[in-house]
Amino acid sequence: MSAVAVAANDKAFETVRTPDPEPRPIKIKASDVSVFYGEKQALFDVSIDIPERAVTAFIGPSGCGKSTFLRCFNRMNDTIDICRVTGEMLVSDANIYDPRLDVVELRARVGMVFQKPNPFPKSIWDNIAYGPKIHGLAKTKAEFDVIVEESLQKAGLWNEVKDRLHEPGTGLSGGQQQRLCIARAVAVSPEVILMDEPCSALDPIATAKVEELIDELRENYTIVIVTHSMQQAARVSQRTAFFHLGILVEEGPTNVLFTSPKEKRTQDYITGRFG
């Protein structure tokens, strides 16, 4: 621990930042966020600005803390008893770690898509309608029908499933399930969508569809995506942040980070020398 403190004083964790050539308004602002699992520190003083209506990718080797950081954005880390988060995190200028904040509302505003497609073992219709139902966004069946269709349209799944809305969502293929999960997240009109390696369980064709979808969703939503694939980060994101051993090493516009990284560790990682 003391070594960590010393390192912090040395400003060894200072993130290398490259300004955005086309600056966008900031949606999420994290300052000095650290995460502890019990005694073990998993994330060290991460500060980053996530721009609005753009895709920000987190890359880095396994266990570098990128998923942990992502899960701070909608306080999913709350579900882990021993997990403790320090620092400040603002979504739309509101501190989400304010004790007065209702986590239920936060998660409606900050949706999440997980690594493994996890549709509820209910019908496709019920999967989409679940969020609006619990948040009271619709009342009549007609209103729900509209939301279901819109969400599935946005997720590019409508044409594939419109004839079997009442069949179980778990009966779809892996890629369709993941797009169903995206549609489910979109159904409550969130401001931010977090994606935790959304394509790691999918084949290349399904991956391409999801990536295409992410690119379309960017127009309306702020998207943060964690990915193991640097190619994916390069393809879908406007900004990329590189994590290593719990430290945010470098972040900047994707094209800059991939072509002329300032840090040697970033260079080594994106050229495949480690990780």
């Binding site: 579900t79 409606a108 997980f114 619990i134």
Partner: peptide, 13 residues
């Protein structure tokens, strides 16, 4: 756990 996470992630209490 993925089912719990999915529901929690949707903002279910």
């Amino acid at each position: 756990p993925s089912i719990r996470e999915g529901a929690l992630g949707m903002g279910a209490s």
